[in-house]
Nucleic acid binder design. Structure first.
Lengths: 202, 202
DNA sequence: GTCTATAACGGGATAGAC
DNA sequence: GTCTATCCCGTTATAGAC
């Protein structure tokens, strides 16, 4: 249950949690009102439609994360290493999405390309992706742009999977892999992805 | 539309296609009957419930892929390289899942951990994962088992994302990245993942 | 095995009082 | 802004004729 903040915020918080847990189609507006302790009509009053609610839930979290990515990238100096660029991209996702169910929420977004490629990806991610791909290209001058883009997608795949499976990864690894130490997880991921980026083209 | 094979096969084929395109919750039994050209009651006759239909759709495709993975792994000889092991895992996914919408179907599975971790993952993937992780551990004797498992998950993430976003990746990269040359894509993915596996632990 | 018809239910959205 | 009550639609599943 969720009883902090105003009605609108409580709706967003509960939606975020439930969407992350069960997917967008898997959660009804009635599920949300029950969790948020608000009336069904309040959702339509504040957000008109379910689709608009979904967009509001996502946008509220994407922008701070991407803002932080820009900040970290710009704080790197003129000739950043691949490791630093990769970390600038991944750290905010683990930091800001680490609490609550934001991780699985973003995982749900990445898991629905057809649904979000126009509404979310092209709006919120495309400019950011271009910026990071450009910076990576400079740090990897021998790698063709096409190859950089592919590898950027590989990195996004690692991140999405981590966000989605974070909740069960400890269980299916018999307790060996824990998400608790986020800094260690980040460094582990950065090493893997950076090594991939720096590998020879053939 | 789909008009080959018997009723049961047509239902499976259409389900596979539509589930891949729109997700399990996003497709109604009526969508399936319309595409398959069969009657609504035929689904209940052959599969009883929607959940059982989903499981049947998935199981029909998972086992041949995993069988091929075992075959490739066993064909490698006593001391395979990391590249060879990674390729043995990834190739069947791209080969057998390359046609139709099998790719996005498997992506949907990987995108729903809570739904499938018990029904699918633990049943079909767990033994396979253990086998591959063991083989990778032998090829990477200095890497702790925990680290091998983490990196195995990173690889799965790359694969899942590729399966899910394959359909839109060409569009969002302005035509630069194409899924058409599957062999090139496979080699590109193997290089990236193998480099990640072989990177130093810290 | 395959159809029509329908039951039984839950979904999103809205009207209108307060 | 928040409530109750309700509309209307699509959903899964089933009954029963053929």
């Amino acid at each position: 249950m969720n009883d902090g903040g105003g009605t609108k915020t409580r709706i967003l918080d509960s939606s975020e949690k439930l969407f992350g847990l069960k997917g967008f189609d898997g959660v009804s507006l009635r599920d949300i009102t029950a969790d948020a302790g608000v009336n069904l009509a309040a959702i339509n009053y504040h957000f008109q439609t379910k689709e608009a609610l979904i967009d509001a839930v996502i946008s509220r979290r994407i922008e701070p994360v991407n803002q932080r990515r820009y900040e970290l990238l710009e704080g790197l100096g003129p000739e950043p290493t691949v490791e630093q660029i990769v970390e600038a991209f991944l750290r905010p996702a683990l930091e800001k999405l680490g609490t609550a169910n934001l991780g699985s929420l973003m995982g749900r977004v990445m898991a629905n390309p057809d649904l979000f490629v126009d509404r979310i990806f092209n709006v919120h991610f495309a400019p950011l992706a271009e910026r990071f791909i450009g910076t990576l290209s400079k740090a990897l001058p021998d790698l063709p742009l096409t190859e950089v883009i592919w590898r950027f997608h590989f990195m996004i795949g690692i991140m999405s999977h981590q966000l989605l499976w974070g909740g069960v990864i400890e269980r299916i690894s018999n307790g060996l892999c824990s998400m608790k130490d986020r800094e260690a997880l980040l460094q582990r991921t950065v090493r893997f992805a950076a090594a991939g980026f720096k590998s020879s083209e053939r």
